[in-house]
Simulated assay, not measured.
Amino acid sequence: MSGLEVVIEDARGCARLFRLGRDVEAGLAMVAVVEAAQPFVALMPGDVQSAWGGLLGLMFNDQQAQNWLSLADYLEFELVELLTAGQAV
């Protein structure tokens, strides 16, 4: 499994934790996912990097609002889509 595949799997696992109501554990896992994803995003085209910044903002807003289900959706679907789209370029 490649490093990016590990990040994607970790993002999905983090989303599951948020859906299970384990928000403290999920919050820590999310920090690790973002830190692990950043080097991959840095190598992707500028439009992917811009989308990354926007996605991080949306995720932060949901975290502040404690909207765990929306945050889980961003991690499981939007982040995974962004990483796989950026990888294909």
Rank of each mutant, 00 (worst) to 15 (best):
M59F: 02
L69G: 11
A11Q: 05
Q64H: 12
R19E: 12
A26F: 08
V24A: 09
E35A: 14
M30A: 14
Q49D: 11
R16N: 14
R12W: 13
V31R: 05
E78M: 01
A42L: 12
V24G: 04
V6D: 13
L75S: 03
G86C: 04
G54D: 14
A65W: 12
A72T: 04
L71I: 10
E5H: 09
V41C: 02
G13F: 11
A36C: 06
G21H: 10
E78A: 06
L4N: 04
I8H: 03
L82M: 05
E35T: 10
P45Q: 09
M59H: 01
L17N: 00
E81A: 15
A42M: 09
V6W: 06
L56A: 05
F18L: 13
G54H: 08
A51Q: 12
F18E: 03
P39S: 06
Q64I: 12
V31L: 11
G57N: 12
L79T: 00
L4P: 04
L69E: 15
L28I: 07
V80G: 02
E5D: 15
A11Y: 12
L69Y: 15
M30S: 08
A85M: 05
Q64P: 02
D62P: 01
F40T: 05
M30C: 11
L17M: 10
F77V: 14
W52Q: 04
R12P: 04
A11V: 05
E5I: 08
L82V: 00
D23F: 07
N61H: 12
Q63I: 00
Y74H: 15
V33M: 08
S70A: 13
Q38N: 00
